[in-house]
Write a protein that binds this DNA or RNA. Structure first.
Length: 294
DNA sequence: GCGTCCAGGTCTACC
DNA sequence: GGTAGACCTGGACGC
């Protein structure tokens, strides 16, 4: 069956699908030639389903391999809207970008919707898996979690594991199977805190805390430092942080500083004119050429 | 083949 | 509040 979801007028499926590396981490799969995102989604009771998502400027189409009930349809719709950020209002952001010649391409191309996972928990686990390692190792760790602990869909693909499934595994699983190394106890502890209800990470989506306070709360999770917290802040819709990592620093040096390394202060000054949108402006600026490369 | 470096950083101890 | 050193892993690189 097929579910059609209307999109905002300024929406670009490609710019969203390739907005950052998340869609190359399981249980996302992306086919750049067909412009399709494949993803295993939980639909409550029963096994999860593998959906294929394609899109135009006007609508997103979600192919579900079997007929499912109304509640499951609502669940899929909610997840797709959330992942592709179809409910985000970027009018103010685009207004700020339009007046700057170097950034005016952003509203024209429909960039600015950073794809995210259906849950904050998944984004948080993945953020921890990006720290202090190559992207290749991040993929190894995330694949280890999904392939070992994810619930299986009818086509054999697996979803992202629940906090409960992760909490039930010993440290040795994270070291030996996931290859998470020193991050192993961090992942287990996080899963336990979420599974027991001690930590409500989904609440960060609607938190009314000022960004610095929410960041402090995020950093109370072991393994989450400045970079991981700021990356997660962007994923929950806070763009007044930069999330500087070695890749961003290197890309800024190449594209904005004549190939020379720039101090973090200089990078911050460069985007400070965009105020509460500076983090999103930075990310779009750094990934401007991605769609051509894909 | 082997050693070193470092990558989409963070934690802890110490000052 | 700031900083040095340790930390898993695995690919790239020089020798």
């Amino acid at each position: 069956m097929e579910i059609k979801i209307p999109t905002p007028r300024d929406f670009s499926f490609e710019r969203t699908a390739f907005s950052h590396g998340w869609t190359s981490l399981l249980p996302f799969e992306v086919d750049p030639r067909a412009s399709t995102i494949t993803r295993v989604l939980d639909i409550g009771t029963g096994p999860p389903v593998t959906v294929a998502i394609t899109g135009t400027k006007r609508a997103v189409s979600v192919r579900v391999p079997r007929r499912v009930g109304v509640r499951a349809v609502r669940s899929v719709e909610r997840d797709v809207r959330h992942m592709l950020r179809l409910d985000d209002d970027l009018t103010a952001f685009y207004g700020a970008m339009k007046s700057d010649p170097d950034f005016a391409w952003i509203p024209r191309s429909g960039a600015g919707r950073l794809v995210r996972s259906p849950t904050v928990f998944e984004d948080l686990v993945k953020s921890i898996c990006t720290t202090n390692c190559t992207w290749a190792l991040t993929k190894v760790m995330v694949s280890g979690l999904v392939n070992n602990l994810g619930r299986e869909a009818a086509d054999g693909r697996r979803g992202f594991p629940t906090p409960e499934a992760m909490a039930a595994m010993p440290d040795s699983f994270y070291r030996d199977e996931v290859r998470a190394g020193y991050r192993s106890p961090y992942l287990k502890e996080l899963a336990e805190r979420v599974a027991t209800g001690e930590l409500d990470v989904e609440g960060w989506l609607t938190s009314e805390l000022p960004t610095p306070e929410l960041k402090r709360e995020m950093k109370r999770v072991k393994g989450v430092g400045d970079y991981a917290a700021e990356n997660l802040l962007k994923l929950v819709g806070r763009y007044d942080v930069l999330a500087l990592d070695s890749w961003v620093r290197a890309t800024f040096a190449r594209t904005r500083n004549n190939g020379r390394a720039a101090a973090d202060d200089k990078i911050a000054r460069y985007y400070s004119r965009f105020d509460s949108w500076r983090g999103l402006a930075l990310w779009c600026d750094m990934t401007k050429d991605w769609l051509d490369e894909k």
